[in-house]
Simulated scan of single mutants.
Amino acid sequence: MKKIINDPATVVAEALHGLAVAHPERLRVTTDPAVIVRTDAPVAGKVAVISGGGSGHEPLHGGFVGSGMLDAACPGAVFTSPTPDQVQAAVTATDAGAGALLLVKNYTGDVLNFETAAELAEATGTPVRSVLIDDDVAVADSTFTAGRRGVGGTLLLEKIVGAAAERGTDLDGCARLAASVVAGVRSMGVALTAPTVPHVGEPSFTLGADEMEIGIGIHGEPGRARVPLEDADRLVARLVDAIVSDLPFVAGDRVILFTNSMGGTPLLELYLAHGIAERLLAERGIEVARRLVGPYVTSLEMQGMSLTLLRADDQLLDLWDAPVCTPALRWGM
């Protein structure tokens, strides 16, 4: 295992320290419990938008804390759900009276721990709503979930709902908007290599030199199929076909296309794949109205990529375009 770390037991705490000193104007970070909060929180009259999950997926979620996106993020240990006390601390730090919306990826630990935290917060008088993101079309169930996994669509959800909350949308309105995003977003990924969790010290799975895993999860969970390595045209076509047929997306749809590196795929390859995806969608009569390309929802150093499509109307596109200022996503400010 070759990693730029000291002790696997302290890697998350040390990384959080680095995040805090790199972005003191945007973030404040605590480590007991571990919570990342925007510096101006709580914002009077604003719904607090909170998410979180295991570390190792950076910049998700902590890199998306800031104006126009998340009010707080709860980082668990590597590939491990945050605890209820982390989520409760995030609610306490960000609620200014308008309540809190929890955006939860569909992994068993995340669902249970966010649910417990929501109950604790409501018991103290804070109104809370929770929305589950389950955009992965690859599998019905996995090692980590009951039902589909929450993957790349999480970023689009956090951006759009964060923009609405910044504009003053109330708690129920933000929850309805989040549910509409979840209903219209689909993702699928592929792995060429496995990630190595620091405290484990060896790859999560083994792939031959001429193999790839189609439909991999962001924790290295099994995918839909293990197949011989293909060229980019055929690989991207596999992902596009699976995503488009699932909703389904149809000719005339406008979409946001998110082409994501799983951590180890260089931008040279990622832009190549993105160009293929745009061409394939155009051939189907699907208009890419907005796009995002880069390593935003990663799986440590895994080589691979994912595609995410969100069916987007004028309202969603307007919220996507709205100003955002976070460590990892910034425009319009």
Rank of each mutant, 00 (worst) to 15 (best):
L16Q: 02
L60A: 14
V43H: 04
V49P: 02
A13N: 09
R28F: 14
G45F: 08
P24K: 13
A44M: 08
G68C: 08
V21G: 02
V43D: 09
L19A: 12
I4V: 14
P24T: 13
R38E: 10
G54H: 04
D71E: 12
L70M: 09
A9K: 13
G52V: 08
L16H: 00
A15Q: 02
V37T: 04
L60E: 04
G18C: 08
L27D: 01
P42G: 03
G52S: 12
V65R: 01
E25I: 08
E58L: 08
A13D: 15
A41T: 00
T31W: 01
I4G: 04
V65L: 11
T31E: 14
P8D: 12
P24N: 13
D71T: 09
V11E: 03
K3T: 10
V12I: 14
L16R: 03
V65K: 07
V43S: 09
V49L: 13
V29Q: 02
A34F: 03
E58S: 08
G68Y: 05
F64T: 01
T30G: 09
D32H: 15
V65I: 12
A72Y: 13
E58Q: 12
G53F: 06
A48G: 05
D71S: 13
V43A: 11
P33M: 07
V37H: 05
A34N: 00
G66Y: 04
I50E: 01
I4E: 09
G53D: 07
G53I: 07
A20P: 03
H17S: 10
M69A: 10
G54V: 12
G68A: 10
T30M: 07
L27V: 06
R38G: 08
A15C: 00
G62F: 02
I4N: 14
K3S: 12
I4S: 14
A22K: 11
G63L: 07
L70K: 04
V35Y: 11
A44H: 10
A44S: 15
G54A: 05
A73H: 02
K46A: 13
R26K: 11
P8C: 03
I36V: 15
G66K: 01
A48I: 08
D40S: 11
L16P: 00
E14A: 07
I36P: 00
G56N: 06
V37P: 00
P33Q: 10
D7M: 04
T30N: 08
I5V: 11
G56M: 06
A73S: 15
L70E: 00
I4K: 04
E25N: 14
V11S: 02
V49Q: 03
T39L: 13
K46G: 05
V37Q: 05
N6H: 15
V29N: 06
S55Q: 01
